[in-house]
């Protein structure tokens, strides 16, 4: 049971990162490979607030999210916007390039030595039934579910969400409705970067803070997103949870080295049975 619970915590982090990926993909039709590195940079920025400016955790957390939003908006306005009508493959290569650039820059600025990073909430474990939760774990789960719910509701039931979905489907028709498509995309990038940033700041206490900290998380987030159908927001989180738990079980009962292999084996099996992902309707077979 305890293994499942700690798996859920990783699952939440994967889910959060996947949420950011799916949100950007759903709206701008683009897979953002730089997502993890943007999250890593955001986490470093929060660490700078924490350690150099000696601010409190909450202040640093919120300021870092503000930074993430601006960061995401700048990446879209400055770079991705110009590629809006470029072939998808070109856009993809650019996000891969950004991955490298952000990783290299972070190394230059903050160095390559891993540093410790504090948890959101300190405190002793609480016992519920036969399992132990730390307050921090409860916080991670709470924030993941809350964010998922918020974005699900926004996407599904608000005017902004409708504009996001319309922009994803037909840019020209959306402009003819009076939607400022570029602004919608920029906002989506900002939100995607925020989600990634939260995932990053939840990851750092577990893995240590260094420039490679988000590599595994990004891969798992991709896996989670694919498992969830890549277009479903709850699917991304559920996919993340499944992968987190599964990975932890493998690591415990079989071998920690093989967890990546088995996790992808699971994904291959799931996709073999349901090619559109668990939550993917027919919609994931979009225009090609």
């Amino acid at each position: 049971m305890q293994i499942i619970v700690s798996g859920l915590i990783f699952g939440c982090i994967y889910g959060l990162a996947a949420l950011g990926l799916v949100l950007i993909y759903k709206t701008t039709d683009l897979v953002n490979f730089a997502q993890g590195e943007m999250a890593m940079v955001t986490t470093f920025v929060s660490f700078t607030f924490l350690s150099q400016f000696e601010m409190g955790y909450t202040t640093s957390f919120l300021l870092a999210l503000l930074f993430a939003a601006v960061f995401g908006a700048i990446v879209h306005q400055g770079i991705m916007k110009r590629l809006q009508s470029a072939p998808p493959l070109n856009q993809l290569v650019v996000t891969l390039g950004l991955f490298m650039v952000f990783n290299g820059l972070a190394g230059l600025i903050w160095g390559h030595k891993p540093a410790g990073y504090p948890q959101a909430i300190k405190g002793d474990s609480i016992k519920m039934g036969s399992v132990f939760f730390t307050p921090n774990e409860i916080f991670v789960m709470g924030i993941t579910l809350t964010l998922m719910l918020i974005f699900f509701v926004i996407f599904r039931y608000t005017k902004v969400g409708l504009a996001m979905r319309a922009s994803a489907q037909d840019i020209k028709a959306s402009q003819l409705m009076g939607i400022k498509v570029t602004n919608v995309f920029t906002a989506t990038w900002a939100v995607g970067a925020i989600l990634g940033g939260v995932a990053g700041m939840m990851t750092a206490p577990i893995t240590f803070l260094d420039t490679h900290m988000m590599f595994d998380v990004l891969i798992m987030a991709f896996a989670a997103a694919v498992l969830g159908g890549f277009l479903s927001l709850p699917g991304a989180v559920v996919g993340g949870l499944i992968i987190g738990v599964f990975e932890n079980l493998i690591a415990f009962y079989l071998s920690p080295e093989l967890k990546l292999v088995y996790t992808f084996l699971l994904i291959i099996i799931v996709l073999y049975i349901r090619p559109q992902g668990i939550f993917g309707g027919t919609q994931s077979v979009k225009k090609v």
């Binding site: 005017k159 409708l162 504009a163 979905r165 319309a166 489907q169 037909d170 028709a173 409705m177 009076g178 939607i179 919609q283």
Partner: peptide
Amino acid sequence: FPLLTVEENLKIGAYI
């Protein structure tokens, strides 16, 4: 908008 419902398509016509 192919993936929006008829109702949502009409609603987005009134976006502004």
